[in-house]
Design a protein around this nucleic acid. Structure first.
Lengths: 180, 180
DNA sequence: TCACACTAGATGACCCATCATCTATATCCC
DNA sequence: GGGATATAGATGATGGGTCATCTAGTGTGA
């Protein structure tokens, strides 16, 4: 059927400026983080998840659930971070297949050093330009879309039951960059 | 000064679900485009800009202004697309340094074939879950943030005067994927 | 207890994005 | 005209992301 419902004027504009905005914003944040702290946004997110855990130790699949990344992406990312000394892999005695990812001291120092300027940049480039209401709306909008994404045909990632959403929701409540 | 203003609960939640949402959404759209049409989102955007022009010909720097990409990213992208036969480079007589990017027939066929299912996916995964108001708000929010980004210290891309915003605004008015 | 399915994770190939750098032309201005 | 400078664009190295596939351990049920 050739009955495509094209985007109308308003949708068009919203969609394009949204994509544009996101691209610019993330480019900036990435650059800031990279030049000021030698971390990528991906590094940062992984480190945050680790510091949010009591003993800075997580199984890769737990990290994966929180980050919602593809398994192999995470694995590669962890390898790179390990090479840079930000974390280590340790064997898991309970489950012979498994591993533990543990934050190193260098890793902790790295995120503690990076967090202030990063949060500052997020605030400066993003939040400071928005009203309280806009922020609330954006949050609502995002979770709505996320729910929708979860609903329509599952992600093609193995090891993805529907614990996913609740696991994610739990992470939502945690703080961004620090534990102390 | 150690006076970092950390994100509060609400900001935290909004920020995280926003990042999460965007990541998931774009992953989906990319996958859809890739498997159904063998195009990446980047290919798609370039092709769209080209089809929006009367004779499907643009100078790289014009494309760059519209897309707001880094110059070298664009250059590499064009090279790849050229190798796949989606476009060609032609010399520019007016300006000896310059080039023209021209859409090939294959390129046009590719985007015309890809557009319906892509727009459909955008609608299904994104717009259909939102109200009119939410869409409007998102558009407004995005342009607000974009303005802010333009204001605070310019992007480190050469060849970026402040024609940028107006050039962008002009593009905003054009339609997404088709010209007929 | 053994086959079979499933889960945890790693890896190589390939594409994409960024950075630094390079070439060539254009422009400005003395 | 001719040097300084700016602009248009390409390119190689490198890190990041995705896909397909692989290994190995776990769980289950006949």
């Amino acid at each position: 059927m050739n009955t495509t419902r094209w985007l109308d004027e308003g949708e068009q504009r919203a969609w394009r400026s949204y994509l544009q905005m996101h691209g610019q914003l993330l480019a900036r944040l990435n650059r800031q983080l990279q030049t000021d702290s030698s971390l990528s946004l991906a590094d940062y997110e992984v480190l945050v998840r680790l510091t949010e855990t009591p003993d800075a130790r997580l199984r890769p699949f737990e990290l994966q659930r929180g980050l919602q990344w593809e398994q192999s992406r995470l694995s590669h990312q962890l390898t790179r971070m390990q090479h840079r000394g930000l974390l280590n892999r340790e064997g898991c005695t309970d489950d012979g297949r498994g591993a533990f990812i543990v934050l190193t001291d260098a890793g902790r120092r790295a995120i503690e050093a990076a967090a202030p300027s990063h949060v500052d940049a997020v605030r400066r480039l993003f939040f400071d330009g928005l009203t309280r209401d806009q922020i609330t709306m954006l949050g609502r909008l995002s979770t709505q879309v996320l729910d929708r994404l979860g609903a329509s045909t599952e992600v093609p990632t193995r090891g993805e039951s529907n614990i996913r959403r609740s696991g994610f929701a739990a992470h939502q409540r945690l703080s961004t960059a620090r534990e102390n």
